[in-house]
Computed example of a mutant assay.
Amino acid sequence: MTSPPELAWGQVAAWRLRRQHLDPRTTRTAAQVASRLCGVQAQVRSAADLAVALRRSPAAPGAVDDGLADLSLMKTWAMRGTLHLLPPHEAGAYLALMQTTGFWLRPSWQRVSGVTPRQIDELTEAVASILDGVVRTRDQLVTELVADGRFAAIEGPLRSGWGQVLKPLAWRGVLCHGPDQDNAITFTRPASRFPTWEPIPTADAAAPVVIAAYLGAYGPATPEAFDRWLSLNATSRLRLRRWFADMGDQLSEVDVDGRRAWMLAEHVEELIATPPASGVRLLGGFDQYVLGPGTNDDALLPAPHRAAVSRASGWISPVVVVDGRIAGVWEISDDELVVSHFPGSTRPPADALDAEAMHVAEARGLSRLRVRQASYPVDAAAG
């Protein structure tokens, strides 16, 4: 048996940076960026705006607004149950895989929510009818639903800002976010709003599409890393292994510094020829470069510094990426961009940080940001 090609992690980082439009940056639209990244997390809308802007040159804000306005982007609950921006014609494949998690079928979820699987099925039918061709605020939608005696007892869960009862409906393709109305969240039916929306495929048809897209941005990766990104490891092990196995010769195994992982066969030679990553990038909170492989990937983020990036309540800090690895965090304070380097990390040249700060300022619509460098507290970095 032929041994898999041996790669250094620095090569992988450089390849990912290029594939994710970070080095070099791109002039592509927000929808094209979201397509390459397998969606942009939009639980915090400003983070989604920044993730797209920092990948574009120039980094002027507004690309996401343009994509939502021209309907090349839709916002819906997708991977890990969080809000994402996705091109409408691609969204169905991701939603199909999220349906397989079936968390609403678990007795523990039913006890906490007070909602039964039958009610989820009934809600799917009712919401599809209510939202067909219209936009409704959450209050309007819920008010109409609870007028139906079948749903009167679950008004509380329906009004919850966490949307746990609405997520299965989004994954079934009958609900997505619509345009905001006076800062109120709205919902609509994707098929009636987006001309490019495509029906949701079966999970088995969607799996190779999503796996290929994921590995094209975040590979090489293991099935387990893919599932952490997709569902926080909620996919059945048997189903996950079968999805990868069914891709056959489309995938190739590689060795990255002694760790085996999979990537698209068509990308192997390109990655082998890629020199190791060099340079610095400042990325915003919840950036896909971090979320794709996950914060427990210690090649990307050394374990002693994980707590500085993966914070309480699921918050992901803005990060300093040096030679492909996370080497610190940053924040904006007044007109300063404060960079906190992790102990023992490589510090980039001051002029490189200044150039990155200019790009961040442009992406945030600011005139300028002065860089102030600091060391991350040792105790805090250790968690």
Rank of each mutant, 00 (worst) to 15 (best):
E253K: 13
P179G: 02
A299T: 14
A205M: 06
P302R: 04
W77L: 00
S278E: 12
L301Q: 10
L22T: 06
V280F: 01
P343R: 06
L264C: 05
P107K: 10
R237F: 07
I272W: 01
R45Q: 14
V338N: 06
A245E: 14
S345R: 14
R138G: 00
G102P: 00
L169K: 03
A13E: 10
V127I: 11
M79P: 00
V320Q: 04
A381E: 08
I332F: 00
T116E: 12
I326Q: 09
A355C: 02
L68P: 02
Q43Y: 09
P87H: 04
A14G: 03
D70G: 10
P195M: 11
Q181W: 08
Q119S: 07
D335H: 13
T100L: 15
Q99L: 07
T26S: 15
P88A: 09
V319D: 03
L230P: 09
A8T: 08
T295W: 12
L264F: 07
C38H: 03
R228A: 10
G258R: 03
L369W: 08
P5D: 06
V64D: 10
D323S: 15
G178Q: 05
H305L: 08
V40N: 05
P58H: 12
R239K: 08
R325F: 10
T76N: 00
A361H: 04
R159L: 12
L86E: 04
E224I: 08
G149F: 01
L105P: 00
A78G: 11
A51I: 03
S108G: 10
A217S: 13
G383C: 08
Q43S: 09
D121W: 14
P223V: 13
R150L: 14
D335L: 11
R18D: 03
V280D: 03
E198Q: 15
E331K: 13
E362A: 11
W109F: 13
A299L: 15
P343V: 07
A63F: 13
Q99P: 00
M358C: 08
D249I: 03
R56N: 10
A350S: 14
S160N: 12
R19G: 02
V209A: 08
A380Q: 14
W171I: 01
L264W: 08
L86Q: 07
R150P: 10
G149V: 05
G344C: 09
A170D: 12
G344W: 09
V290L: 15
G279F: 02
D148H: 05
